[in-house]
Design a protein around this nucleic acid. Structure first.
Lengths: 242, 242
DNA sequence: AGGAAATTGTCCGCTAGCGTACATGACTTC
DNA sequence: GAAGTCATGTACGCTAGCGGACAATTTCCT
């Protein structure tokens, strides 16, 4: 089966071999991703694993005093709940719908069964897990070194990668939470980026005007995990055709 | 084989089933961990995977302008080069010896063969990979929210977890690099912690005086990945006996 | 012992971003 | 179209930590 024929927009699923797809597909069901819906609750059993088709998931590390920081962003290129591949029931991290859309989902037990009988499937999914780890590592890096404006720019580009179109429905308050900074700080940084003409901001919306310029504004903090994704999934024969 | 009998101090290896140990052990060779030795070079083939027995490895994300930030710390509880389990040849991250010691190491191709024929072995090692991801996620969290003193305290406790004794041979310059902060900032934070009597600092050395107090000084940033490790590896029958 | 090197202590002005509060503007609801 | 809610703009004093420089100290090497 050529990947174009697989009835999904998920890049990870599309990269699977025909056989792996046959293993998995009977258990996949279409599901809507509703705004702010919780996909996995920290330390509670993961029920479903989601292969995103449209929309965005955020993975967040919850800490003391209700503080949180985003450690991962998942779009149509990936899946939620990676620990489930390893047979783990839970994870301390929190995953929720950040931008509504849709996904193919599978029950944890079924995924578990699939990856146990289909080794190649397991390998593919684990490779995505590596990408997520890389993303998290570079988020730690950016948090340590990056200025607010750079981190914001990085984040906007990462968001842009994962959705159609240049209009990102976002409010400052939410950005502040994701970046673990103060809301007026975001307002100021948005103004600066807009002043440089790389984005255009309206109430509840950021539009990417000049993606390349925005990447420059990210000051070198964008790109490493993305390069890793392309490196790894480009060597899969099924994606090489894209 | 009771785990106590396995000739290794590595907690991950000790947690393996008798069978998995038999799969792996023929390929393991003792190796010295020399100070600052490079264990894996970013984007170059991983040659060996190290199961640490004594000493410490640091995993670092290298970024533009020679900037770097630590995203993982590995002692006798873990292993280096997790991506190799997945069949990946390389990783963008850097691993080096932070504190000299010794390890059992295995060639990447051999590890790969072992995990392909021994499913349970693969599962165990992958579970450690999950721990590393969790550690990285909470490093990102601490980098985003924590003050320098809190991050330093967290780091010292994590170091303390992974070595024998309370004497940590450390210079401020190095701590500054790990935490991605300015060296005099470390000096000041060390003084503060010493002023509270939780550590004692001498040239090239930090001694843990009051571990519990130090954890408090970490302001809630220490503990989540460690809890996850204990949760996951305590359910392994082999470690339950310890 | 004497000089070199490494490590730590300290100081300066500076900046990013905080915490807080409040005002303005925009969209929604009835 | 009035009231209410949500989102954004802005201001102010404050603090942590920066960048850089330099001095003091300890250890190492010869």
């Amino acid at each position: 089966m050529a990947e174009q024929e697989k009835p999904t927009a998920n890049r990870l699923l599309k990269s699977l071999s025909e056989e792996s797809w046959r293993t998995l597909s009977p258990y996949l069901e279409e599901d809507e991703l509703r705004h702010r819906e919780s996909i996995t609750v920290p330390n509670e059993p993961i029920e479903h694993i989601y292969f995103v088709e449209r929309g965005l998931l955020s993975v967040v590390a919850p800490g003391p005093a209700g503080r949180r920081a985003e450690v991962g962003l998942i779009g149509y290129e990936g899946m939620s709940g990676a620990p489930a591949i390893l047979g783990l029931e839970t994870s301390p991290l929190d995953t929720f719908v950040q931008r509504p859309g849709s996904a193919l989902r599978i029950r944890r037990e079924n995924l578990r069964r699939c990856v146990q009988e289909d080794h190649a499937l397991k390998e593919s999914l684990l490779k995505f897990m590596h990408i997520m780890t890389t993303q998290t590592a570079y988020t730690a890096f950016a948090n340590a070194h990056g200025r607010l404006e750079e981190r914001l720019a990085r984040w906007l580009v990462m968001y842009h990668d994962r959705v159609d179109g240049d209009e990102l429905p976002l409010v400052h308050e939410f950005l502040a939470m994701m970046l673990a900074v103060r809301r007026p700080g975001v307002t100021e940084a948005v103004h600066n980026l807009e002043g440089h003409g790389v984005i255009k901001a309206r109430r509840g919306n950021v539009t990417i005007v000049n993606r390349e310029g925005l990447i420059e504004k990210a000051g070198g903090f964008y790109g490493q995990p993305e390069a890793e994704y392309n490196r790894i999934f480009a060597t899969q024969p099924e994606t090489a055709k894209v």
